[in-house]
Design a protein around this nucleic acid. Structure first.
Lengths: 135, 135
DNA sequence: GCGGGAGTACTACAAGTGTCGTAGATTCTT
DNA sequence: AAGAATCTACGACACTTGTAGTACTCCCGC
């Protein structure tokens, strides 16, 4: 019953939710020791143990999202991939996954479902005009 | 070394990637037995064992995304949550996760990074005008 | 009235994830 | 230098997810 010796069950191993939470803090900070990141997380209401944050930082490093240098006592971490890169990668994945690669329907749905202010709408229009000008 | 008897490590249990793949097929189909879903997945290049598809359908049902009725021999599944609902929920989660709740920057980034055609841009402009008119 | 095929239920299991505890190393304080 | 405060390394463990095998059930044709 279910010997199951084959090799199944792997995944892509990308940025996970928890790792992203930590990475976001790294993007904001300049110095970024584990303790500082933990404190900033606590400050924004996210309570995690020191070692949990450490685990995330390590995993982020293994996955190539950050790098660390020993600065005296502790390691200091810096993001290797920018927020823009990560967000656009995630957005692209979303487009593929939910809209089969068609980004326009996604934008349309967003524009419809989110309630944007006049100012925001104006910003959209402005950008559209620019894009249109370039072609 | 790490007795660790506490209760940690749970998650929200939401729609997973594999489940979504199957759900997307359900959204398209009318009849939707396990076998049919599997065949349509195969047709689009996604090879999964019958029981794997079954597992996803069951998990989808447990999570409330689909319901099933025994139609003679086999169960027939129908989606309980519409594509629109699911996509907008996922999009909202994305907005929260990546843009701290601000949808406008996400739309802007999409408009910049994806290369939209004139027609698509025209569609955006049209929608914007409508939104603007309502206000 | 039974064998075969379709279908479902149950089990399994590896990798990934969230969450941390503990032990050992290093450094700061007195 | 002893003890305190910090850090990191390593392990641990429950739950999820992707993926599927096996066993049991039910009906159909012979």
């Amino acid at each position: 019953m279910g010997k199951d010796t084959g090799s199944r069950g792997r995944r892509q191993s990308e940025l996970s939710d928890g790792e992203l939470e930590v990475l976001k803090v790294l993007w904001e900070g300049r110095s970024n020791t584990v303790r500082e990141v933990m404190e900033r997380l606590h400050a924004s209401g996210r309570k995690l143990a020191y070692t949990t944050v450490l685990t995330f930082m390590n995993r982020l490093e293994q996955k190539g999202y950050v790098k660390s240098d020993k600065a005296g006592l502790a390691y200091v971490y810096r993001a290797k991939r920018s927020r823009e890169l990560v967000t656009s990668t995630k957005l692209r994945a979303m487009v593929e996954q939910l809209f089969d690669g068609a980004a326009a329907p996604m934008v349309l749905q967003l524009m419809k479902s989110e309630n944007f202010s006049r100012d925001e709408i104006e910003a959209f229009r402005k950008l559209i005009d620019e894009l249109d000008a370039e072609g």
